[in-house]
Simulated assay, not measured.
Amino acid sequence: MSTVAVARKDFLDVRRAKIVWFVGVLYALFMTLLVFVEQSTDSAPSVLDALWNLTAAGAMIIPLIALVTAYLAIAGERESGSIKYVLSIPNSRRDVVLGKFVTRTAVVSASIVVAFVVGILLAILWYPDPQLDIFGQMAALTILYALTYVAVAIGISASTASRSRAMGASIAFFFVTNVLSLFGPLQLAIDYLANDLLGLEISVNQIVFLQSLISPTTAYVNSTGLVFPDGFNTIPMELPWFLQGETMLVILVAWLVVPLALGLWRFERADLG
């Protein structure tokens, strides 16, 4: 077998997981709700406002879709012992990790694409200027964001030998990089550590950059400056180079590659006996 064969078999398993489809449908419902609310409450509805609100909601929901879809991809089979069968066909351990990543990537991406297709159709129906190019750019950016959490989940799953450990590590990662990031404590913690304890006297912008390195969610939110115009809503008119959208894209790509590589490295050295 190969990476593609592993992915094909894994897709047959993951498509039966109802929780995966539930969270995907939930995101599509949020898309529908936010597009509807904007056009029904504003005399001059703007797609940009609807997508801005969707960014805030998606920043929380998208990681849940990704983590729920992928965190048991390998750890579940290691705990049940079925991983030995998969590797005996034969497949390399790299085939397993990459095959699982391909499958979970396809499922998560499909749920996001469906949600954005629904949003585009409703925007064409309800808005005087649906701005389809903005929808397309936000869809691509959101898929990249989702895949960072898929990579993290696969990396965690490949590094752990049980469902409980994979779940615990995924919840902890989500709490630190998403909940604490979105609601402020992560930024306050970085400020306290860097300025109060270490006396570095770094600026707010530098703190936000450090937060973006720690949190894919922060990098995603900051990268939306590539889509929305300068000065829109809370987007500053000018930003230093290290907070520009292009820099945030580099960080997101790093979050896509590094956890997957580390998970593969751990899995190749794991004792599956």
Rank of each mutant, 00 (worst) to 15 (best):
T218W: 05
T218S: 15
A219L: 11
A219V: 01
A219K: 02
A219E: 09
A219W: 10
Y220K: 00
Y220I: 00
Y220N: 00
V221A: 11
N222C: 04
S223R: 04
S223T: 01
T224Q: 13
T224L: 05
G225C: 07
F228W: 04
F228L: 02
F228Q: 01
F228K: 01
P229A: 02
D230R: 15
D230I: 01
G231E: 00
G231H: 06
G231N: 02
G231P: 02
N233T: 00
N233Q: 04
N233I: 00
N233W: 03
I235C: 04
P236C: 04
P236A: 05
P236E: 13
M237S: 10
M237F: 08
M237E: 15
E238G: 01
E238H: 09
L239K: 15
L239V: 15
L239G: 11
L239I: 12
P240G: 08
W241Q: 14
F242N: 09
F242L: 07
L243N: 06
L243T: 12
G245D: 03
G245L: 03
E246W: 09
E246L: 11
E246H: 10
E246Q: 13
T247I: 07
T247R: 09
T247V: 14
T247W: 07
T247M: 14
T247L: 08
M248N: 14
L249E: 03
L249H: 00
V250G: 07
I251G: 01
I251L: 13
L252G: 01
A254Y: 07
W255T: 06
W255S: 08
W255H: 14
W255P: 05
W255C: 03
L256Q: 06
L256E: 02
V257S: 10
V257I: 15
V257T: 07
V257M: 15
V257Q: 09
V258E: 03
V258M: 01
P259M: 00
P259W: 03
P259V: 05
P259E: 04
L260N: 08
L260F: 07
L260H: 00
